Amino acid sequence: MSPTRRTTRRSLARRRVPRAAALALLLATATACANDVPEANWSRGLLPDHITEQGGPIQTLWNGAWIAALATGAVVIVLIAWAAIFHRKRRSKADLPPQVRYNLPIEMLYTLIPLVMVSVFFFFTARDSEYLTRMSNNPDVRVKVEAFQWSWRFTTTVGGKTLQPVAGMPVSDYHQGPQLVLPVNKTIEFDLSTDDVIHSFWVPEFLFKRDVIPGIPEDNPGRKFEIKTLNKPGVYAGRCAELCGVDHSRMLFSVKLVNDREWNQYIATQAGSAQ
């Protein structure tokens, strides 16, 4: 290779390094474009710290599924490595290994083990699903959530009083969107509705989200769910998790958990416009 070609290749390589660094920076900023990404860690399986009582079983189910999946993957990798290392005897192209029609113990093993695994997964999933969809007769607070293109309207009812509805517009920061104020250590019932397209009500710290589908009647239990908030006051981001149109990414809101004193003050200031 001529010196000129070597110099040209080195110069091209030097140019590619800053380009690659710029591309990596662009990808990093693009994936972190949302300013409402909650903090997560490995001990919770990269899930955010939950703020509801129902988040505990979801966290346990999530961690158990990951442990089972990783254990299954480890066993499969070990078996593949064992077969590749200890059965690597070279043979001629015409010499086939011994052909066996069936092996009853092995066939029973790879039939029963997946059956047991699926049965265990089904049991825990069904048990937790029943708990997560359970509704009480007298929740402390009822919230009617109306989704529309492209924001939210929250109407809160507590103690027979309907507070002033809170509605918003498409925004770029969840702090600027409509804010749903809720008390800590209380049971909250959500009633989801929409008149246009499918949306999805999602607060990451709930570890739960539900689609908001048009045309679902009010008496259908599928449009309702219930949580019990924990004693973790703060402001938490919420968003629509279903692609619903051009301003879907700006369909942001926030949930503010407050203590009893702040909650009573909030009720006193908002209950005057009961409808």
Rank of each mutant, 00 (worst) to 15 (best):
R6K: 11
T8W: 06
R9P: 02
S11W: 09
R15A: 15
P18W: 05
A28T: 07
A34F: 12
A34I: 06
E39S: 13
A40G: 02
S43G: 07
G45M: 08
L46P: 08
L47G: 01
H50T: 14
T52Q: 04
P57G: 10
T60Y: 11
T60A: 07
L61T: 12
W62P: 01
N63T: 12
G64L: 14
I67Y: 13
I67Q: 13
A68V: 13
L70S: 06
A71N: 06
G73R: 02
V76T: 06
A84C: 12
R90L: 09
R91Q: 11
L96F: 11
L109Q: 07
Y110I: 14
Y110N: 08
T111C: 11
P114I: 05
V118T: 05
V120Q: 02
F123E: 04
F123H: 09
T125F: 12
T125K: 07
R127H: 08
D128E: 06
S129G: 11
S129Y: 02
S129C: 02
M135Y: 13
M135D: 14
N137L: 09
N137T: 15
N138K: 05
F148P: 00
F154G: 00
T155K: 01
G159C: 09
T162L: 00
G168Q: 03
P170W: 01
Q179G: 12
Q179D: 10
P183W: 15
P183D: 15
N185S: 07
N185W: 11
T187N: 09
E189C: 14
E189D: 08
E189P: 06
F190G: 03
D191S: 10
S193Q: 11
D195F: 03
I198A: 05
V203A: 03
V203R: 00
F208H: 12
K209N: 03
E218W: 11
E218F: 12
N220H: 06
N220Y: 03
R223V: 13
F225M: 08
I227H: 03
N231S: 15
P233G: 01
G234F: 07
Y236Q: 01
C240E: 03
G245T: 05
G245D: 07
H248N: 15
S249Q: 14
R250F: 14
L252E: 01
L252Y: 14
F253H: 04
S254I: 11
V258S: 11
V258M: 09
N259Q: 07
N259K: 02
D260Q: 09
D260F: 12
W263S: 04
N264H: 07
Q270M: 10
A271P: 00
G272S: 03
